[in-house]
Design a protein around this nucleic acid. Structure first.
Lengths: 243, 243
DNA sequence: ATTTGACCTTGACGTTGCGTCAACGTTTGT
DNA sequence: ACAAACGTTGACGCAACGTCAAGGTCAAAT
């Protein structure tokens, strides 16, 4: 047999056969006078065996080990491990399909949204138009995108009170005042007042979460010094309260 | 934010971020005076979104399309396709695990066997020791390895009569006579006799399958001319019978 | 007798999504 | 003052082949 016939017999490409030669998976057969490889039936048997194993998902290196082993020991070992691996993959795919279904359902409703449905609803409830509000929305979108599904729902629930009609007015006012102090020095008297107001306005759970944040985090550099100061004060107020 | 902080925030490596820049998935942010990239919260949002999509299994090119689309149209399209793809993968994995279980069970019983359990049993029943018998075993092993699971079982059943105790004697004798004519010319009288005997000995179903074979196939070159002639005659006998 | 077409040869680059040096500059902490 | 921990670009490595490139070989059709 020449290489093309061997390949067709087993159902692979000639390139694959030569690749296996290169890796030492399949021994190089004798050559004819013209340099062509001349295969025997044995080679086809080995090639088919290699093929079966790779189709099961073994890497070529693993196949090499299994073939070299010549005993069933390693084979069982590798197969068991592979089965465990496939089981993991199954779970992963299932999880992905679940998220996909979630995303698809959401895309039908709100084609332009990049966040989860819960969060999208909350975000629509929050005031807009202020510089700081935009910043806040980015922050919330980020948290929503980065968190796991369970956390996302919980987080959205924590925010919901701020988006309720009776709270929106005050939310908007606070945003406006945060905008106002953008260029103020950090020791402006409005800074401390705002921190107090925020501590009062934010749901407790949310405030508790913020305690873990570091006021020096890089993303906070996008706020002005005075705004950062508001948050520094807010954090200390919350910390005192929870102690 | 500098690149390390952005990466940590979203949960990827800095290399990944730079890779996304390279592919145009994430816009290059402004640089600081020292050449460092300076990221804003927006970038984190985009990066997180890219990340979510890739984790769902989208390729980076697909993610790029989705992001460029800016409308939900393409997103839905890609997601639906992806879901179909994942469904296919699930089925494939399931099939692989089924074959794996098969192989594992078999490996427990006969650690050194490279063929299916049915075929292994049949092969043990067939005579050995003759040159031609070895060739035949290779051929059968190959067919077993290459065929699908259903075909394998059917094929093994077709062979079983030849391995039964009452047929083994005659099988062995035929093998011996095929060995004998190895160096004979194709027009040796024993050739025609052997072809008749084989046509008589082989199960009908098996003979019917052989009709599809081409007597010039490369793997047949491993037989001597006289042996090939036996098969050529055998094929014509079978063809006449089935007409 | 030649030309076409189907095969074969080796060698090398392309694919995907980054990991991992290398070789170097910057900033920060002790 | 020096080390540790950041940042920069550039380039190679990985898995399992696909896909040219640039030929040589062989049988059949012209």
């Amino acid at each position: 047999m020449r290489i093309g016939e061997l390949a067709a017999l087993v159902g692979v490409s000639t390139r694959t056969v030569r690749h296996y030669h290169h890796l030492g998976l399949l021994p190089e057969p004798e050559r004819r006078a013209n340099g062509y490889r001349e295969y025997r039936l044995r080679d086809a048997v080995v090639l088919a065996r290699v093929r079966r194993l790779t189709e099961l998902g073994l890497s070529l290196d693993e196949v090499k080990d299994v073939l070299a082993d010549e005993q069933g020991r390693e084979l069982r070992e590798v197969l068991a491990e592979l089965d465990a691996d496939l089981a993991r993959q199954q779970k992963a795919i299932e999880a992905r399909r679940a998220r996909l279904a979630e995303l698809l359902a959401e895309a039908e409703l709100h084609p332009d949204s990049a966040v989860s449905p819960h969060m999208a609803e909350v975000l629509r409830g929050l005031p807009r138009g202020s510089r700081f509000a935009e910043f806040d929305q980015e922050l919330l979108a980020l948290v929503d995108t980065a968190a796991g599904p369970a956390e996302r729902a919980r987080f959205a629930e924590m925010l919901r009170p701020l988006a309720e009609p009776e709270a929106r007015g005050r939310s908007a006012e606070i945003y406006a005042r945060l905008d106002e102090i953008a260029d103020a020095p950090p020791d402006d008297p409005r800074v401390a007042a705002l921190a107090e107001e925020l501590a009062d306005h934010l749901p407790e759970e949310l405030a508790a979460l913020m305690v873990e944040q570091n006021a020096d985090a890089g993303w906070m550099q996008e706020m002005s010094p005075a705004q950062r100061e508001v948050f520094r004060l807010l954090l200390s107020i919350v910390r005192e309260r929870t102690c």
